[in-house]
């Protein structure tokens, strides 16, 4: 039988003294074939590890102890195999314990949330917290998302303008819809005489009893340069009007239009015109 046909199981039997006649081939190959020799040694190591791992049959185990384990070198190899097994098992046990611990903690977290949300009170509290957080975030980012001009407008218009007499010293424009340039009553202001803010009073053509507010758009040469929602309606002697301040920086020389839209009637536009000269 050529060396290449010698199976590892044959080598194992040979080492255990259970060989049935292939011994000479193995021994010759051991001496002359380096590759076979290295394989032989690997099978020997495997055999030792199998003994340590208690994977040998009872006959193999008996032969291992009586026939194979007869040298100090082999005994040292067994001790090495035992150490290696112990070390690897300990390492594996530690790894498994860590995995289990991690999974247990994960499971505990899941159970906590599961129990927490299965009860109505914690659920309601959680929802309130979420809503409060969302409101906070919205408020924060909402206020911060305003442009500098919008912020300035908000600052100028945060008060109550019922008593317009208080603003007698400030630039003002009283506008009536439909009045065009060249007509009587066309509103105009001189740029050089403007105060830092201008009070706009826009007369509303219709009067309603219900509460309402308006959206306005400031246009120059047909382009919207500023818009604002929720412009408050004030009562006056003849009816109603919109009152608001615009920052003077917004008003350059030129002709402007203001479109006012009742927020409850989006399709109606009231147009006011004025000139800064």
């Amino acid at each position: 039988m050529p060396a290449e046909k010698v199976k590892n199981s044959d080598i194992k039997k040979y080492l255990l003294g259970l060989s049935d006649g292939d011994g000479e081939i193995i021994e010759e190959s051991l001496l002359v074939d380096d590759e076979f020799y290295e394989n032989f040694l690997s099978v020997e190591e495997e055999l030792i590890q199998e003994y340590v791992d208690d994977e040998l049959t009872s006959e193999e185990k008996k032969q291992f102890e009586s026939h194979f384990l007869i040298s100090e070198e082999r005994f040292q190899k067994v001790k090495f195999a035992q150490s290696l097994r112990k070390h690897i098992d300990q390492k594996e046990t530690t790894r498994k314990a860590e995995t289990t611990k991690s999974e247990t903690q994960k499971s505990k977290s899941i159970n906590f949330f599961s129990n927490f949300f299965s009860s109505p009170i914690p659920l309601a509290v959680s929802l309130l917290v979420v809503v409060a957080l969302m409101w906070g975030i919205f408020s924060y980012f909402g206020s911060n998302s305003l442009s500098p001009l919008e912020k300035e407008f908000a600052e100028l218009n945060k008060g109550d303008f019922n008593d317009v007499g208080k603003y007698a010293n400030l630039s003002r424009l009283n506008l009536i819809s439909g009045v065009t340039r060249g007509s009587n009553g066309f509103g105009k202001l001189s740029k050089k005489n403007l105060t830092n803010k201008v009070l706009f009073r826009l007369a509303l053509p219709t009067k309603t009893e219900s509460e309402r507010d308006f959206k306005i758009e400031l246009l120059k040469t047909q382009k919207i340069i500023f818009m604002q929602n929720r412009i408050r309606v004030y009562k006056n002697e003849g009816g109603e009007e919109l009152r608001f301040f615009l920052p003077t920086d917004l008003l350059k020389k030129g002709e402007y239009q203001i479109k006012a839209m009742d927020n409850s009637k989006q399709d109606e536009e009231i147009i006011y015109s004025f000139l800064i000269e």
């Binding site: 040979y14 080492l15 003294g17 011994g23 021994e27 051991l30 001496l31 020799y37 032989f40 026939h67 007869i70 040298s71 082999r74």
Partner: peptide, 18 residues
Amino acid sequence: SIRIRLTKIFYARGCHTA
């Protein structure tokens, strides 16, 4: 190499004084 391999053979043949 020969010495080591002969030792292996003698041990495999069950010789304590391989």
